[in-house]
Design a protein around this nucleic acid. Structure first.
Lengths: 152, 152
DNA sequence: TAAACTAGTCAGGCAACCTTGTAAGGCTTC
DNA sequence: GAAGCCTTACAAGGTTGCCTGACTAGTTTA
């Protein structure tokens, strides 16, 4: 098996996805660094991006984030220590704890989600709104992630 | 600052990109595992995906992969040990070495690139060709990665 | 009320990156 | 043609962000 090296090859899809995601993360990181919450890293997103307003259990967070409980637990401890979340016992189950945003955590979350939307907005301005809409539509179809229903 | 929790929120763009990329990697990993090159991991792609047919210097590979020379050097050593690439001295520069695919490496590369295209193809069948075309078009525009010109 | 299950934590590990430092070969400039 | 600076690669060691496995404590089921 060999490859034709004379015809220019379209970029590999895996690379396109990788670069796009990477660029997004870098951009987000830079923006977060310019806020009062500069100690937050992209990895913290597994909590901020999946937690319900009334709080969420670790197991549930992990499932949503597609990560292990241990990993999310670590991130949670870090956020707890920094004052962004707190663990309170779940009244309905003695084993469980509810992870809940603190006031500071809520502010940071709102700001972070805003920055994420801001970047998408800027992509639309720079590269065309239809293009970014099509991107979103395709990604939603492929990943099966339509919308996050966060009900209070 | 606070968030409206009653209106369902569209999925975050960063999550869409993350999940899509992750799914792609997982799929690729599974497919590679069913080939004679099952010892290849996605991280090896920084070499396979950026190397020229006549070979490429470490520094150049690192630049294309957007990684440090050290990281790519590690991956290269690993691939070298497994017999996929070899380091030969660059005749035009005594300091440099050219990283070149072995016969086995070329076969693995061809197979891997084929699998990547195969996944994109299947996405097109499952989710609609126009959708995947639009996805590719948008990603190319956003990342600035139009095509890989690999000339022999 | 014992067995089976579930929630969370602790301990340990590993891949994939990074930074810093060193050595050797090349280019430049006087 | 030697001094000084850049470039190429490598070596050592560290960090991040995940993972698996083993365990404790509480809950549900038979």
């Amino acid at each position: 098996m060999s490859i034709d090296h004379d015809t220019p090859r379209p970029a590999l899809m895996i690379r396109l996805l990788n670069v796009a995601f990477d660029d997004f993360c870098d951009d987000l990181e830079r923006r977060v660094a310019d806020t009062p919450y500069s100690d937050i890293r992209v990895a913290h997103g597994c909590v901020f991006g999946n937690i319900d307003p009334e709080g969420t259990r670790l197991t549930e967070l992990a499932a949503r984030a597609r990560m292990t409980k241990q990993s999310v637990g670590e991130v949670t401890s870090d956020l707890e220590q920094r004052g962004y979340v707190e663990r309170v016992p779940d009244p309905s189950d003695g084993r469980a704890k509810i992870i809940r945003l603190t006031e500071r955590g809520r502010a940071a979350q709102a700001l972070g989600l805003g920055l994420i939307d801001e970047i998408e907005q800027e992509w639309a301005e720079r590269f065309g709104a239809e293009r970014v809409t099509a991107l979103r539509e395709a990604l939603e179809a492929i990943t099966g992630e339509r919308s996050v229903i966060v009900t209070a």
